[in-house]
Design a protein around this nucleic acid. Structure first.
Length: 270
DNA sequence: CTCCAGGGTTTGC
DNA sequence: GCAAACCATGGA
């Protein structure tokens, strides 16, 4: 099937933007996985793409996933004159904030703490390969992200072999709480931002940064702008220690992602 | 060898 | 309340 996406949409930048850890380029197509859904998407023209899914799946799963109902172009054009942020947004044109599965995002960002992005990708891929159920696509067999039920029963040794290190108890606690229906992540969609933040932070191993990432990348809370080591460097060195992101209000998370992507590709500047 | 990676919890004051 | 210590692991 062919779809048309007239707004900002750059598969390479989305893949490299550090929100999703299992996206992979296969020839000139990109593969994304969420839950048990897999899509292969390949550019055809400037605004047209081949997609491997049905129209129904595109509309129900992938339009929300890629946040395609939001106008990123006008968001970029609406940035106040600001040397760094304008430059970062221009450089990051094409990035979108993915709306990912809450469980997968929660575990992925718990694992992410004090790891490099390549190390995060390796750990999550190892976790999926060793614990995730097989998904058959028309091109290949791949592993889904492990369910909470599966991870709650995983052994420490099997988790350690995925490189989870000291984060193993964090993952097991979260898996047990969610598999036991003590935490209904779906229901948290109804919470306002402060309530959602505090609920996420009740999870062992989840602090401000991981909670902010889950809010932005799974719950679509665009006001959430996670401050990690790189964003912290930007705040110190480009903004004299004053965090500029809250002033962007409901675009703060998008600006944060432009800034994060920019600095990942200009590390010598910081 | 040391330092760092999309940090958080525990401990000590 | 805040700062320091500690936490596994791999790469530079």
């Amino acid at each position: 099937m062919i779809v048309t996406i007239p707004d900002d949409f750059d598969l390479q930048k989305i893949s490299d933007s550090g929100q999703c850890f299992r996206c992979r380029q296969i020839h000139d197509a990109y593969r994304f996985i969420t839950g048990r859904n897999v899509i292969y998407i390949k550019p055809k023209t400037a605004v047209q793409y081949h997609v491997s899914c049905t129209l129904k799946e595109w509309e129900e799963i992938w339009i929300p996933y890629f946040d395609l109902t939001r106008d990123y172009q006008s968001t970029r054009n609406g940035i106040d004159p600001d040397g760094f942020m304008e430059k970062a947004a221009d450089f990051g044109k094409g990035i979108r904030i993915l709306r990912q599965d809450a469980w997968e995002t929660l575990i992925s960002f718990i694992i992410s703490q004090r790891k490099s992005i390549p190390a995060i990708k390796r750990a999550i891929e190892a976790l999926a390969e060793s614990h995730g159920e097989i998904i058959h696509t028309e091109y290949e067999d791949i592993h889904a992200f492990p369910t909470a039920s599966i991870l709650s029963q995983a052994t420490d040794a099997s988790l350690a072999s995925c490189g989870l290190g000291y984060r193993i108890p964090y993952v097991k606690h979260a898996a047990a709480a969610i598999a036991g229906n003590h935490m209904l992540l779906k229901d948290w969609d109804a919470l306002d931002d402060p309530s959602l933040l505090s609920m996420l932070k009740t999870i062992h191993g989840v602090g401000d940064k991981v909670a902010s990432c889950v809010m932005l990348f799974a719950y679509g809370r665009m006001s959430s702008a996670p401050v990690d080591t790189w964003i912290s460097k930007i705040i110190e060195e480009k903004y004299a220690g004053r965090n500029p992101f809250p002033s962007y209000q409901d675009h703060a998370g998008i600006m944060q992602q432009y800034a994060f992507y920019y600095i990942q590709n200009h590390k010598t500047e910081v």
